[in-house]
Design a protein around this nucleic acid. Structure first.
Lengths: 318, 318
DNA sequence: GGTGTTGTTGCTCATCTGAGCACAATCCGG
DNA sequence: CCGGATTGTGCTCAGATGAGCAACAACACC
């Protein structure tokens, strides 16, 4: 397109989008036919000079969702817009809200929902609306936080999600990671615990988040791992954890021994499930999101625009 | 509007603006009539959820221009968009370009154009296109910079503007400010100088910029004033200078004695002229822009979006 | 319960707009 | 200089959209 046409297209766009003139009126002003004006406007759009943004906490980015679905094997992707967000916390809240919306819109309503725990899932539970899934059974799929001050967070997440669905929560009364393998095996042998684990393995849907492998991990906060252990895992390729288990970029368990001492559903069981919803948001979670999506650990991803774009970008550069 | 309608309007907007669906199709998806969808989209716009931006160096903000014209006595206002600018320099370049465009579009073409000098006007001269005003006479209206390294800038601005209009430049061969009043008066008595000044007083149009009163002023750079003198002027209410003369927020000369020693057109003559174009852009020039506009020192203002908004804001809060 | 008021809904109709097409202008190799 | 290819232009026509209106529901007030 010629240089003067480009300028004209900008003038036309100003009149069209900012002054709400019709293409006819613009034609009179710029001494063009209305068809020419239409073409100029189309070219302004095509050249990316017109940027349309939906600024709202509940706004999603459908084109990005579609591209994500197409370029990965995801059956569904929910991408919240980051337009107008001022803090990371706000973005995570938006993502949690979107996850809650998605859950509430699930048809058929899952009878049994397996969930992990963490700040993200707690947020989701808060944003869920009352009566979202009549009679749902919520079951914890990995060992809970209970060593120090955050006692009860994991339980409260499960209970809240269940209550808001007028259903029941089944808690997994176990630490996340045992120090000794024998203790863990003894625990798993317990009838009650075994029952909960079996229930978790047979859930119809799973909802979980993931953590980046760094010193701020919830597993460190809760005292199950030390910062040094995390550093060691990172040096061996770990990018983050899913249901308490650390994986590398290829979705493989980083430390088999540690994995053995971890209570809860196995990564492979997650991989085989027909409906697994991952909620991962935040600028520091791009790597773990990538590992989860690339390796089929979830069938549905709920995330933010920036994380989604990061996922798409690396797809484009093989 | 109800809460659920707000959410629906966002869903509709996503489908309409991001997925290019028709209102009809959206109606099918959201189980609404197409009229309802139209109304939802209208309400999304009305609520400001839809933000349309024209991202282009030459983009202007017509609604802001209109509001400026209405709320001030300006006959015209040119406001360049700051969408997508990364640096102050880029914004000033855009503004200069817009000023050049405005000049080139002036009808009737002014026979005599009085101009001041400075970085801004130099930029304007660079952006002007060849042959913008066949036969224009450009005349300097205030004393030029010539004390140190920047020698020639003022002259080159005038000459460039004249040459690109296939016309002639008349330079004012005088310092901006004299140390002694007597010297200035002697200079003005000179036939040549008096002729140039008279030509300047009778120009059909004026083009000038303005400087904020601070240590970076071009008058300090050029050695006419010291930082201490500026500080003194500021303490007496000066907000900036126009054609070398310092004015306060009410458009009044701050230092009558200094003003007497300044060579060039008087503020009042500018005020009385039928066409005076001020080019003022930059975050630090809001105060001087306000003084110029509020006190009728220009009939046309070329500025950037942020400055324009600053002007409008204070109008709203009486 | 009657009734005026306010806000919503579905609709008609006029207008606006984009796709597709025929024709004109321009470019380019012979 | 000419014929063909390519690009740009104006138009028809059908589909998309917004303004305005009548019907209707919701609600407060008498």
């Amino acid at each position: 397109m010629s240089d003067t046409d480009e300028l004209l297209s900008i003038r036309a766009a100003e009149l069209y989008y900012e002054e709400n003139q019709t293409q006819d009126e613009i034609g009179v002003i710029l001494r063009l036919t209305r068809w020419k004006v239409g073409r100029l406007l189309a070219s302004a759009k095509a050249n990316g000079f017109i940027r349309i943004e939906i600024v709202h906490p509940r706004a999603r980015r459908l084109p990005i969702e579609r591209r994500l679905r197409e370029s990965t094997g995801l059956t569904d992707a929910i991408v919240v817009s980051s337009a107008g967000v001022s803090s990371e916390a706000e973005l995570q809240s938006r993502t949690a809200q979107a996850a809650a919306d998605f859950l509430a819109g699930l048809r058929p309503i899952p009878r049994t929902l397996g969930i992990s725990w963490g700040r993200t899932l707690h947020d989701v539970s808060v944003h869920l609306k009352q009566g979202w899934a009549p009679g749902v059974n919520v079951v914890q799929i990995n060992g809970g936080v209970s060593l120090n001050q955050r006692t009860g967070t994991a339980a409260s997440t499960a209970v809240t999600i269940a209550h808001k669905g007028d259903g029941a929560a089944t808690l997994l009364p176990s630490p996340a990671i045992f120090e000794r393998l024998e203790t863990k095996q003894a625990m798993e042998a317990d009838r009650t615990v075994a029952g909960v684990l079996a229930l978790g393995r047979n859930a119809q849907a799973y909802l979980f988040s993931a953590g980046q492998a760094d010193a701020n991990s919830a597993l460190v906060d809760s005292g199950y791992l030390t910062v040094e252990q995390i550093d060691d895992l990172v040096s061996r390729g770990a990018v983050g954890d899913v249901v308490g288990r650390y994986i590398d970029a290829n979705g493989r368990i980083v430390d088999a021994e540690l994995n053995e001492r971890t209570v809860g559903i196995q990564i492979d069981q997650l991989r085989r499930a027909p409906l697994t919803i991952a909620v991962i948001s935040g600028n520091n979670k791009h790597a773990i999101a990538r590992a989860v999506v690339r390796n089929g650990l979830c069938t549905v991803l709920v995330t933010d625009e920036d994380t989604a774009n990061a996922l798409l970008q690396e797809k484009d550069t093989p």
